[in-house]
Amino acid sequence: MAQFILVHGACHGAWCWRDVIPALESRGHAVRAVDMPGRGGGVAGLTLKDQAEAILSAYEGQAVLVGHSAGGFSISAAAEQAPERVSRLIYVAALRPANGDRLGQRMQALTGERADLPLVVAKDRLSYCFDTEGAGPVLYNGASQADMDWALPQIRHEPSGPHREAISLGDNHAGVPASFVICTEDRMIPAVDQERMAADLTDVVRMETGHSPFLSDPDRLAGHLARMAC
């Protein structure tokens, strides 16, 4: 049995793992989804260290950290801070950073064809949010309309600070085994960019889903996560 900690991406929360949690629990695993600090925005001074500590404080012992999208930076920071507490990193349609990367710059450097999803920046410049009008087919392509209608109202402003910060990664992070779930129909982080980020890994699977397999194919995603944890 593995212990899983599930980490959401930008503008999302622990809620997005609704269907993956029972699918992993039914396979005998312990699972917890965590909220990164600053949901809703308006919080100054947040850092990647704050995200790492939110992850590490959510469990005892060792865990498999699963990061979706921007959550790839969050779980990487946690592994660098406490590698002895991380048995594996699993990136799901995620940004897998190298030392010195900034999340915003990494997104701008993507080379694959992406859908246009406007951002709404808060007046205080401390956070941003996806413009939810028309966002369903971009964020959740492949999911049912009912699931899109459930998810979209829960999207919240994301604190900008951690996304502007250069991540510091070294031997701690490098020593933790990593896996990657590539989503081949992703309209946010194109598959060609995911393939490049996963090129040095031996444990890679591909799902014919959009950016959010936790909604469009949660049971199959859980099966991949369970296998990767072994």
Rank of each mutant, 00 (worst) to 15 (best):
G134F: 11
S69L: 05
E84V: 08
E53W: 02
M36Q: 15
A33W: 04
P83S: 07
A78V: 11
K123C: 00
A52T: 05
R220V: 12
F130R: 00
A79S: 13
L48C: 09
W17S: 07
V7C: 04
P97G: 04
A10F: 04
R39D: 00
S127Q: 14
P37Q: 12
E185C: 08
Y59N: 00
S26V: 00
V20A: 02
R88F: 12
R206C: 14
A2W: 00
D19Q: 13
V43N: 03
M1W: 02
L95W: 08
V34N: 10
D186E: 10
P37F: 10
R27W: 05
I189E: 02
C16Q: 14
V138Q: 05
I5Q: 10
D217F: 00
H12N: 09
V7W: 09
R196A: 15
R32Y: 00
W17D: 09
V121D: 00
G223M: 08
A94C: 12
G41C: 08
E208D: 14
A44L: 02
A135P: 11
A229N: 02
A23K: 07
M197Y: 06
G67Y: 10
R27T: 02
G104P: 00
E80R: 05
R114H: 01
Y128K: 01
R206Y: 15
L46R: 05
A198Q: 11
G136W: 04
R206T: 14
D124W: 04
G134M: 11
Q154W: 09
G67W: 10
D193I: 10
L48S: 09
I55A: 07
E60C: 00
C230S: 15
P213V: 11
E185S: 11
R18N: 08
A23T: 07
R27Q: 15
G61D: 04
A77V: 06
V64G: 06
G67A: 08
G28A: 06
D50W: 01
L221W: 03
R39W: 00
A93D: 05
S127I: 09
L139F: 01
L152W: 08
R220I: 07
A229W: 02
F214K: 03
A77T: 06
A122V: 09
L225A: 03
M207D: 09
I182K: 06
R39L: 13
G210S: 09
I55H: 07
A94Y: 10
A33M: 05
R220T: 15
M197K: 03
S127H: 13
S216P: 07
L24Y: 07
G100Y: 10
R220N: 15
P190D: 12
L89M: 11
I167N: 06
R156F: 11
Q194E: 14
G38Y: 08
A78I: 11
C129F: 00
A94Q: 08
I21E: 12
L139D: 01
I155C: 05
E165T: 05
S76Y: 04
V176C: 12
P177L: 12
R85S: 08
A82M: 11
S69R: 02
G13R: 08
E80I: 02
K49L: 12
H157I: 01
P213T: 11
I189G: 01
L215Y: 15
C230G: 15
H157S: 14
S74L: 07
V64C: 11
E53G: 00
C129W: 01
S127K: 14
E158R: 04
V181C: 10
I90N: 05
Q62Y: 00
A23M: 06
W17Q: 08
